[in-house]
Nucleic acid binder design. Structure first.
Lengths: 151, 151
DNA sequence: CATTCTTGGCTAACTGTGTTAGCCTCTATC
DNA sequence: GATAGAGGCTAACACAGTTAGCCAAGAATG
């Protein structure tokens, strides 16, 4: 999707119907001939992101490596990460099983312990969001914070 | 602030310059005689929220109790929680020390270990956001996830 | 071959957002 | 009593998502 490039090149704010249309050499209303609205675009982006994040985690073994990979992916795709994780998911229009598939590698690494998997996910999500939002002090040692969290 | 009531009664979307003005019996442009813009309102709300969250945590002792209190406060004030925690903080216009004061109780409970404090914060933040965004399955045992995370 | 339908573009326009410019009135102060 | 400031107001702008309705090119069908 062209939306992704726009998102990452210009930032989250820049993903507007008109700018996306312009990038496609089209006028905004024409977008609605292909897509039902902004919501659907975000859902498509979220699906792409979840798939990719799942694959990224599947390539790692061990919680520490997964944490590192999670963070790296998020910092490399900050706007997409936000779109995919900081809104309610439109599960109606998401290919079924996609969410589970994205979570599978982590769940496996934790021997199927869903509670620990959720806690890990929340920890990683929180650390990433706080970092992206500049909520930690400039001099914070985030590597150490991750290490502390995974202990 | 009247903005807070509006925020919690009607949801985050409902906090608009015009609706806030209307609640104050005023027209939107008149707001700018009191406030520099939406940004400043959000900063004021964030300050209020941070103060309150700090006090809430200060009333608890032990990580588990703090976690419970954190979650409860966030679920009781979801829109305000978001405004206060999911954006970059405008530190220029925030009374100095406020951030540290809000974090102090937690830091103390962790014997001054900043890394563990950041990890705890991130865990709590992540759990709360994922819950607020409906990202966990309907039947997820979030109490257990919190417990797993604090272990 | 002619007709019809579908696809995918377009312009114009509506509502709602934050915000600015400029005016006017009341009230306190010298 | 003149004056300055505080705090209202209306009108307007740019930009957001979105809808309605038109039109042209190509596919499908008689």
């Amino acid at each position: 999707m062209a939306a992704r490039a726009l998102l990452e090149e210009e930032g989250e704010e820049a993903l507007t119907m008109r700018s996306l249309a312009e990038r496609l050499g089209i006028k905004a209303p024409s977008l609605y001939k292909h897509v039902s609205g902004r919501q659907e675009i975000e859902t498509l982006l979220a699906a792409e992101a979840l798939t990719e994040m799942g694959e990224t985690l599947a390539n790692e073994s061990g919680l520490e490596a997964m944490g590192r990979a999670y963070r790296t992916w998020a910092l490399d795709n900050p706007a997409l990460y936000r779109v995919a994780t900081t809104r309610p998911l439109d599960r109606e229009n998401l290919t079924p099983g996609l969410e589970d598939a994205a979570a599978a590698p982590l769940l496996e690494a934790l021997d199927g312990d869903r509670n620990r998997a959720r806690a890990f996910w929340a920890l990683a999500h929180g650390l990433v969001l706080l970092e992206l939002d500049g909520r930690f002090p400039e001099d914070a040692d985030l590597e150490a914070a991750w290490a502390a969290g995974l202990g």
